[in-house]
């Protein structure tokens, strides 16, 4: 399988690549639109800030090439947030593939921000390799609106979409590469899609 990890110049894509190597794959990390277009599957990773990431995506001429993808694409954490229309983080216009906005998490007593650690999922679609009660690892200060495309949800003061699916587009707010066996099941389901 030809797997491309989109290099947006930020974040720890090292651990994402390693997670796929555990499946015997050799992912290609690239920002070349042609290479991304021909991949069987595409990963849009992301750690860092939405504004910085979108600046990098624009600077590399990747906005339209990414929007045009028809093969399965998985956005992870910030990569999922970039699929939405806009983010409160630095008032950023994102890729606009999924209708909805990314909003700041508000801290409250007993609910620090970032939302950091292992949270329990409620899962609506067993085809994503996850089940009700699975714990997966989150590390984020912003979260997407609970859109109809949500297929797994965590709670953190409000419902947090943990996984969305819209056609070929997958998004994971959590870090499957750092979520133990549950994360591996999710990645396996994506690779099988």
């Amino acid at each position: 399988m030809n797997l491309a990890i989109v290099d947006v110049g930020c974040g720890n894509i090292g651990s994402v690549a390693i997670a796929f190597e555990r499946f015997g794959l050799t992912p290609r990390t690239t920002s070349d639109p042609a290479e991304i277009a021909v991949a069987d599957k595409v990963i849009l990773p992301g750690v860092g800030a939405a504004g910085y990431a979108m600046d990098e995506i624009r600077a590399r001429g990747l906005v339209e090439p990414l929007r045009a993808l028809t093969q399965p694409v998985l956005g992870i954490c910030l990569g999922m947030q970039l699929l939405f229309e806009a983010s409160d983080e630095e008032e950023t216009d994102c890729l606009g593939i999924v209708a909805g906005r990314v909003r700041r998490l508000d801290p409250a007593p007993g609910r620090p921000v970032p939302h950091m650690g292992w949270s329990k999922l409620a899962v609506d679609d067993p085809a994503i390799g996850l089940a009700d009660g699975d714990y997966v690892y989150f590390a984020h200060s912003f979260a997407c609106d609970p859109v109809p495309e949500t297929v797994a949800t965590a709670a953190y003061g409000r419902p947090i979409p943990a996984v969305i699916r819209q056609g070929n587009w997958w998004g994971a707010q959590f870090h499957p590469e750092r979520s133990g066996p549950a994360g591996a099941r999710f990645l396996e389901a994506f690779l099988a899609s």
Partner: peptide
Amino acid sequence: ARDFGAQC
């Protein structure tokens, strides 16, 4: 924090 995010 600016380049990698506060969660890092």
